[in-house]
Design a protein around this nucleic acid. Structure first.
Length: 274
DNA sequence: AAGTTCCCCTGTTAGC
DNA sequence: TGCTAACAGGGGAACT
């Protein structure tokens, strides 16, 4: 569920809380969360200062004083809590960082889909997961429309499925991709190889506009299966089609179906035929 | 190289 | 009431 806007909101919140602090110790309670040797992970982190907190696509990057970085992908339900007390009753807390000011940074993930990696500064952008991440619509101030058009146009799958692929445009997930396609007036089922370069430009501009607006409102909070104690955003008030039933533009009934196994909302009137 | 399928997880909900 | 199966979904791995 956290998409670029939510991850950026988490980054901004955490940045104020933890940058400058030292990681005194780390407790990994669910080992599959870590994508490398647990002991290497621990020994490389313990005793390091948190220099900065960055982001690329949906990946959080904790830059440490030993030129290493903790990469964290929240996937579906990952959340960070920064609190003075350790909550051991919470069975969904899988990683605990003990900080130099006595506070705890706890990573909670009900579905356990999240992952963490450890990368050196010099390999950060040339190894997975970040090497797979394409144009970041919020961080990258310029883009090559021709290149993005080519990457989209050479695929035959539905445009929504292509936009969910982080290697072309990064940061869109199931909610914002529906919004972007609605405002771009493009049917999500349209084959990617029938998308024109003008439509690609529209998609990029709407992606930049919508993600920045969503960040302004601290992301979208939609009721998931679990009650969330994480960052509560406001952007759900501005959603045009995702989770809605009536088109805000023409008042016709929205269509709700599946693309790549993802629930998809769109207006067949406003977003045209295939 | 692109596309397809399976898999990881667990809380919630529909169905019997 | 209690059980089971289906479902939700981002992305990686393996395979075609």
């Amino acid at each position: 569920m956290p998409e670029l806007a939510e991850v950026e909101t988490v980054r901004r919140t955490l940045e104020k809380e933890i940058v400058g602090l030292k990681i005194k110790d780390i407790d990994i309670r669910y080992e599959n969360m870590i994508d490398c040797d647990i002991n290497d992970f621990k020994s490389n982190i313990k005793g390091q200062n948190i220099i900065s907190l960055n982001r690329r696509g949906k990946v959080l990057i904790f830059n440490l004083s030993n030129n290493k970085n903790i990469l964290s992908h929240l996937r579906m339900e990952g959340k960070y809590f920064y609190e003075p007390n350790l909550n051991l009753d919470n069975k969904h807390v899988h990683v605990v960082f003990m900080l130099s000011n006595g506070y705890y940074l706890m990573y909670q993930d009900v579905r356990k889909f999240g992952r963490m990696w450890l990368r050196n500064n010099d390999e950060l952008y040339t190894t997975k997961p970040i090497i797979e991440i394409g144009f970041d619509p919020v961080l990258d101030k310029s883009y090559d429309v021709e290149k993005i058009y080519k990457e989209i146009h050479q695929r035959k799958i539905e445009i929504k499925a292509t936009l969910l692929d982080q290697s072309i445009i990064a940061g869109l997930g199931n909610i914002y991709v529906d919004e972007v396609l609605f405002y771009s007036k493009i049917n999500p089922h349209k084959p990617s190889n029938t998308i024109s370069i003008e439509e690609v430009e529209k998609i990029i501009k709407e992606t930049i506009r919508i993600l920045n607006l969503a960040i302004k409102y601290k992301g979208t909070t939609i009721k998931t299966f679990t009650s969330s104690h994480g960052v509560e955003g406001e952007y759900q008030k501005f959603l045009a089609v995702h989770t809605k039933t009536i088109c805000p533009c023409c008042n016709s009934k929205l269509i709700c179906d599946k693309i790549k196994g993802r629930t998809t909302y769109y207006c067949s009137m406003c977003q045209g035929e295939l």
